[in-house]
Design a protein around this nucleic acid. Sequence first.
DNA 1: CGAGCGCTTGATGCTAGTCAAAGCTGGTGG
DNA 2: CCACCAGCTTTGACTAGCATCAAGCGCTCG
Lengths: 261, 261
Amino acid sequence: MLHRRFISARYGAAHANSTSPHHDLMISKLENSFPLSAEEKQALLELPIQIVDIKPHQDIVKMGDKPSQCCLLLEGFSCVYKLSLEGKRQIMTMHIPGDIPDLQSLHLEIADINIASISACKVGYIQHKDLHRLCERYPRLTSAFWRETLVDAAIFREWLLNIGQREGYSRIAHLICELMMRLKAVGLTENNTFNMPVTQAELADATGMTPVHVNRVLQALRTDGLIISNKKQITIPDWQKLTEAGEFDPLYLHLNEKKVS
Amino acid sequence: MLHRRFISARYGAAHANSTSPHHDLMISKLENSFPLSAEEKQALLELPIQIVDIKPHQDIVKMGDKPSQCCLLLEGFSCVYKLSLEGKRQIMTMHIPGDIPDLQSLHLEIADINIASISACKVGYIQHKDLHRLCERYPRLTSAFWRETLVDAAIFREWLLNIGQREGYSRIAHLICELMMRLKAVGLTENNTFNMPVTQAELADATGMTPVHVNRVLQALRTDGLIISNKKQITIPDWQKLTEAGEFDPLYLHLNEKKVS
DNA sequence: CGAGCGCTTGATGCTAGTCAAAGCTGGTGG
DNA sequence: CCACCAGCTTTGACTAGCATCAAGCGCTCG
């Protein structure tokens, strides 16, 4: 059973400075690349969010669903995946806290993907109707959300290059670089170390490889001194070398573009 | 040299029924999944478009560019691609008439992709500022354009599944199914036949294979009776069998969802 | 009619897949 | 607190799909 908590997330005008950690996560993410006015932030703070805890490896959205809400990832890792007819799974992106995995459902009625937790997660559900109302009133927020979906698409494209043209060693290195960079942007790294609660089987599904081969590549990366892994902790001793191995260029993440619309 | 024609695409209110084939292409595409009011259509018709002819295999947008306009593909095929450091090319999607290949540039300042023609093309450039103004005034058009970029993303995801998890034979079959379906939606097929001005080397770049292997797979598809190819014409004698071979399910294209926002 | 591009074919080898089994580890219950 | 179990990781042996290299063929267009 899911553990559900209904959070009263409405703040009166008198509490303009009130904050909620959940809303702040979303706001700081949007603001990272798109400056927001006080009024726009206030409007975001007033969004009702329903908090739900999710267990590891559990579906959040299933292909064919017609969701009436978007989910904001608050804690943990989740992923988007599809299955081939033979049951092979392709993970298309991983989401970290602050991401809105199915923002696309705002304008695509039927989900064409599955979304699942990787680790235990906490997600916040936001009703489509609330988001639509917000976008109507604040066109700049529409742009900010639209932009988020465009960055998601840029990540899919980079993964296509990764899987289509690079060999196993580079693919894994690239994925680790991306996670490092994105986690750093939301303050979830420390001394080139971060938590990666991802099994080798999941890495395999994300890189189009087999678990056996992922295991061997990880060993190679370790012996080459590109990563140090301890349980689910990854440390990157030499960022330069890892980015070279993964051909990693963070342009596609569109972090910190100074966007002044 | 590019052959440039500046088309005066403005129509007065007195010409509410005036049409331009270029604008109509865009309008009918948007309307396919998102009904538009007469007023919205009129506003689209008034968009200034600058028509340019492009030769085959020519870059239209380059990584690092900061475009101030979007291009609407009017004739021919184009593609989005990226290069790995070793110079290997991954094509991420193909565009057909009616598509807007770099709509993303509306909200992502720096292009993280290259866009190139495949065949000879005719494109129409639309200034960002005109699109921004349009979106401000007609929020439903914002939604329609946003939705277009979401369908693009859905195609990237399906290609990830295709390249990551399916073998060569299925990949090519899937790609042909997708092109058939999308071309049909804009009326560019006839009796299960369509024009595919794509070289085997480009098919290879699109599917993460080598040209040699693409050649062998195409021969297999032909001898299995799944496709008939004559020059650049492709005929699909048995749609059912081809979709099975390619595991093709058109859900991800989000065609004809009755969207009544 | 020759040049160039794209298509086709053959021989060979590597990357990564498959199958199988054994070690590890963390969580659970007695 | 220890024993056990399940899921994850690691290892080995073998194989397949696809890449690579190389050369010849056949259009089409100037």
